[in-house]
């Protein structure tokens, strides 16, 4: 899932304080699962802003709303008229949602209530760990299913640096060394020999280094166009 965490409230207040009619707009997919931007969190945040506004003597109307997904128009289009009626939409969707809504909403500003952080999984209740970097050129078949791009602090491709200490990364003892995990996993799988080949410099272009990315699913596009005719 896409993991995000709510921005510090002081930062949010600085963003919203000069608006009169604010909608906190939640997304019930990824960011709801990580307890930061779903319907429940949008409601709580709206209530917090109302309280602050009242303390500060700022006349402000703050409402909340959530839809299933902010990244496909079919989910939020039906609510668009409602959404357009505000001075500010404070989105608690991920950054994709903020961008997508900004392009479709017209004159109303859309601000981020979250810091979108990474693609991750729930390793234990309440703990989310980055597992994929969306690099556009997957190498997991060569690394025992453990990603050196997302999970090695130096995105190394040929094994662990000298900073590995008892299986942890030199950046923090909270971070597992990806290459330690990869080596141990490859040993278990009996595929260590794959790690002895030198991986050449990567082509980073399919990642964010080739400019903003776009993917066209030709079969879907063709099918839709066929139906339209």
């Amino acid at each position: 899932m896409i993991v995000g965490s709510q921005k510090p409230f002081d930062e949010i207040w600085e963003m919203v304080k000069d608006f009169k009619k604010v909608l906190v707009f939640g997304c019930n997919t990824c960011v709801a699962i990580c307890h930061s931007g779903g319907a429940k969190e949008a409601e709580e945040l709206a209530s917090k802003i109302r309280m602050k506004a009242s303390q500060e003597g700022a006349g402000m109307q703050v409402d909340d709303l959530a839809v299933q997904r902010h990244c496909e128009p079919e989910y939020f289009e039906p609510e668009m008229e409602k959404v357009r009626g505000y001075d500010l939409v404070l989105s608690t969707a991920c950054g994709v949602g903020v961008n997508f809504l900004s392009e479709r909403i017209g004159e109303t500003p859309v601000y981020p209530g979250l810091n979108t952080t990474f693609f991750g999984a729930v390793t234990e209740p309440g703990v989310f760990v980055e597992m994929c970097a969306g690099c556009g050129d997957c190498v997991l078949h060569m690394t025992g299913g453990i990603c050196p791009i997302a999970r090695c602090s130096k995105t190394l491709m040929n094994g662990p640096c000298g900073g590995t200490d008892e299986g942890k990364c030199e950046v923090s003892s909270e971070i597992d060394c990806a290459w330690f995990l990869i080596v141990e996993r490859m040993k278990k799988l009996g595929t260590m020999e794959k790690l002895l080949e030198i991986k050449p410099p990567r082509n980073w272009a399919p990642g964010t280094h080739g400019g903003p990315r776009r993917m066209v699913a030709e079969h879907i596009k063709d099918m839709e166009e066929g139906e339209a005719q």
């Binding site: 130096k154 995105t155 491709m157 040929n158 640096c161 030198i198 991986k199 410099p201 990567r202 980073w204």
Partner: peptide
């Protein structure tokens, strides 16, 4: 940066 690693 880490565009390349030390072996590369």
């Amino acid at each position: 940066v880490y565009d390349v690693d030390s072996i590369q």
